[in-house]
Amino acid sequence: MEETVYNYKEDFELFDDDMDKYEYIIDLGKKSVTLNEADKNETNKIKGCQSSVWFVVRKVDDKLFFDTDGDTVIVKGLAFILAQIYSNHTPQEILDFDREKLKILNLDEIISPVRQNGFTSMLNAIYARAKEEL
């Protein structure tokens, strides 16, 4: 997980301004899977976001995989980043990963305080699902 975070950090450092970072996030959002309508339900919806975001969790061989979607392309990109960081890990590995380590991505520079609340809600959902799957 930490390695994926560092990879994103390096990617972000390539950009001189926020608009380029956003272009990158938008591209990630466009690349991410689109959930089918049935999966975009209230159970999978992340509470506390300004726009709609959905996380679907799959468990394969004791590891969790997160498929994400959102109705705004920027949030979809941010959700995709989180999904890439936390997917393919066991619930215990996720719970052991200190979310403070995400701070090196400096996401607070590119998302507004309101958005940060939504970002925290997404993280909370990941850790909650990992706890359920222990």
Partner: peptide, 13 residues
Amino acid sequence: IHHQDLGILLDKQ
């Protein structure tokens, strides 16, 4: 296009 996306990108400009 979602209005929230436009709000963020306009703010960054």
